[in-house]
C-alpha cells in the first residue's frame, strides 16, 4: 500500500511539466501552428522563472517571468510562421537551439544557487485526510493547479466562441477567413499561449520539481510533450493521460532506485521514457483511424489570403 502511494505521489509530482507543455502545444497546433520550439522555450522559462523568483523574492513574479521569457520566443516563432509564412519545422528547431543556447549562456552564474521554490503542502491538516492525505502531502500548489487547466481548455475549445475560432483557423484558415475569423490574430494568440505554457512548464521544473537551475534540465521533456499531443489526438483530456503515463515511468524509476529492486537495469529504465514515447506514437498512428474533426487539417501550413 505504501509502495502504491509512493508511486502515485511521484507520478503526480513528475507529470505537470509535460502536461503544461503539451496543453500549450495542443492549443498552438489546434490553431494551425506547429511549434517545435517547446524544448527551448521550457529551458528559457525554467531559467527566467528561477532567476526572477530569486531576485524578486516572489514565486508569482517568477511564474510571470517564465511566461514572459518563453512568450517572447513564441512571438518570434509566430512572426516567422504567420507573417513571413516561413517553414514551421525549421523555425521551431531554430527556436529550440536559440533557447537552449540562451539559457546555457545566461544561466551559468546561477548553477548550484538556491532560491525560492514551491514547497509541498504536507505537514498540515492535509496529512490527516484518509487515503489521499499522504498522497497529497507530497504535492505542491503549482502542480495541483496545473490539473485545472485540463477542464478549462476543454471548455474553451468545445463551448466558446474563441474555441470555435481556434478550431476553424487550424482546420481551414481560408474558409475561416472568409467567414470573418481573424486568422492571423488567432494563430498569434495560440502560439503565444503555447509559449507561455512551455515557460510555465519550465518554471515547474526549476521552482517546484527539482528547485534550482541546471543546464539542459528539461532532458527532452519538451519533445516528449510534442509527442504527447499526437498521442492525445489533440484532446486535452488525453493529454493529461499522456502526461500521467510519463509521470508513472518516472515514478517507477524512482521506485526501483529507492527499493533497490533491479528488475530492469538502471540504464534501460532511463531510456524507457524516450522509448515508450516512440512506442506510444507508433501505437496511436497504427491503431487509430484518423480522428476526423480533431486533427487540425491545416497544421503546419502557412496561410495567406492571396493564394
Amino acid at each position: 500500500m505504501d509502495d502504491l502511494i509512493f508511486i502515485v505521489a511521484i507520478t503526480l509530482k513528475s507529470s505537470p511539466a509535460v502536461l503544461l507543455a503539451s496543453l500549450g502545444e495542443l492549443i498552438s497546433e489546434r490553431g494551425g501552428i506547429l511549434n517545435l520550439g517547446v524544448e527551448g522555450m521550457m529551458l528559457v522559462g525554467a531559467l527566467a522563472g528561477f532567476v526572477t523568483a530569486r531576485q524578486s523574492a516572489s514565486l508569482a513574479l517568477g511564474l510571470c517571468g517564465a511566461m514572459a521569457a518563453a512568450g517572447l520566443l513564441a512571438l518570434l516563432h509566430a512572426f516567422l510562421c504567420v507573417h513571413l509564412r516561413a517553414d514551421q519545422v525549421i523555425s521551431g528547431l531554430a527556436v529550440t537551439i536559440l533557447g537552449t543556447g540562451l539559457s546555457s549562456f545566461l544561466g551559468r552564474p546561477f548553477i548550484g544557487q538556491t532560491g525560492l521554490h514551491f514547497s509541498s503542502i504536507g505537514g498540515t491538516w492535509i496529512d490527516g485526510l484518509p487515503l489521499i492525505g499522504p498522497l497529497l502531502a507530497q504535492q505542491n500548489l503549482f502542480g495541483l493547479l496545473c490539473l485545472a487547466a485540463v477542464p478549462a481548455l476543454m471548455y474553451l475549445l468545445g463551448r466558446t466562441w474563441l474555441g470555435l475560432y481556434i478550431r476553424a483557423a487550424g482546420q481551414d484558415p481560408a474558409a475561416a477567413d472568409a467567414a470573418g475569423v481573424p486568422v492571423a490574430a488567432i494563430r498569434y494568440g495560440c502560439t503565444l499561449f503555447g509559449g507561455c505554457m512551455a515557460g510555465l512548464a519550465g518554471a515547474y521544473l526549476s521552482l517546484a520539481y527539482t528547485p534550482g537551475w541546471k543546464e539542459g534540465m528539461t532532458g527532452g521533456q519538451g519533445w516528449i510533450a510534442i509527442a504527447m499531443v499526437i498521442f492525445a489526438t489533440w484532446h486535452p483530456l488525453r493529454a493529461l493521460l499522456g502526461a500521467l503515463l510519463f509521470g508513472l515511468l518516472n515514478a517507477l524509476q524512482f521506485y526501483f532506485q529507492a527499493t533497490g529492486i533491479e528488475l530492469i537495469p538502471a540504464y534501460i529504465l532511463h531510456m524507457l521514457p524516450y522509448l515508450l514515447t516512440v512506442g506510444v506514437l507508433v501505437l496511436v498512428t497504427v491503431l487509430e483511424k484518423p480522428v476526423l474533426g480533431s486533427v487540425p487539417g491545416a497544421l503546419g501550413k502557412p496561410f495567406s489570403r492571396e493564394e
Binding site: 513571413l84 517553414d87 537551439i97 543556447g101
Partner: peptide
Amino acid sequence: LPASISMVLEGCLLLAILAATVFSTHRL
C-alpha cells in the same frame, strides 16, 4: 564567457536565414 554563445549565434543564424529567404523574394 560561456562557450554556449556559439549556440545562441547559431540559433539566431538559422532564424535570420529563414527570414532572409523570405525577404529575398518578398517584402513586408
